[in-house]
């Protein structure tokens, strides 16, 4: 695990879009923070954005389903939708767990 975290791709750049203090948003924030602390300690930047406050972002960032975590770095860009309760899928989406293919 440690090898993967400090891979040459550099720090993870993550942005989490939430909608105020909705139950999904609250859960998503808690979940992603826990996952990042566990799997990417000190190797990530997480920005949490309340879309209600910046509605223009919804258009600019092509937001539809919320909450959504946007992984901007490392490539490829991934959009993780939901309250991040499915830990395995979050890890796959972040590229931490291998074997990301079409699920469901």
């Amino acid at each position: 695990m440690k090898d993967q975290e400090s891979d040459p791709q550099g720090r993870y750049k993550l942005q989490l879009f939430v909608t105020g203090a909705s139950p999904n948003s609250v859960r998503a924030i808690a979940n992603i923070k826990r996952i990042c602390e566990t799997h990417l300690p000190d190797n990530y930047d997480l920005e949490i954005t309340d879309v209600y406050r910046q509605p223009l972002l919804a258009h600019d960032k092509q937001l539809v389903a919320l909450p959504m975590l946007l992984k901007m770095h490392p490539h490829p860009v991934m959009r993780l939708v939901g309250d991040m309760s499915d830990k395995e899928k979050v890890l796959k989406g972040l590229g931490i767990l291998p074997g990301l293919q079409e699920n469901d």
Binding site: F17, L66, D83, M84
Partner: peptide, 18 residues
């Protein structure tokens, strides 16, 4: 769809806001 991973409960608030 190729760059979307569903990780739990969500809603379409993004669409509503837009």
């Amino acid at each position: 769809r190729s760059e979307i991973q569903e990780t739990g409960e969500y809603d379409l608030d993004g669409l509503f806001i837009r």
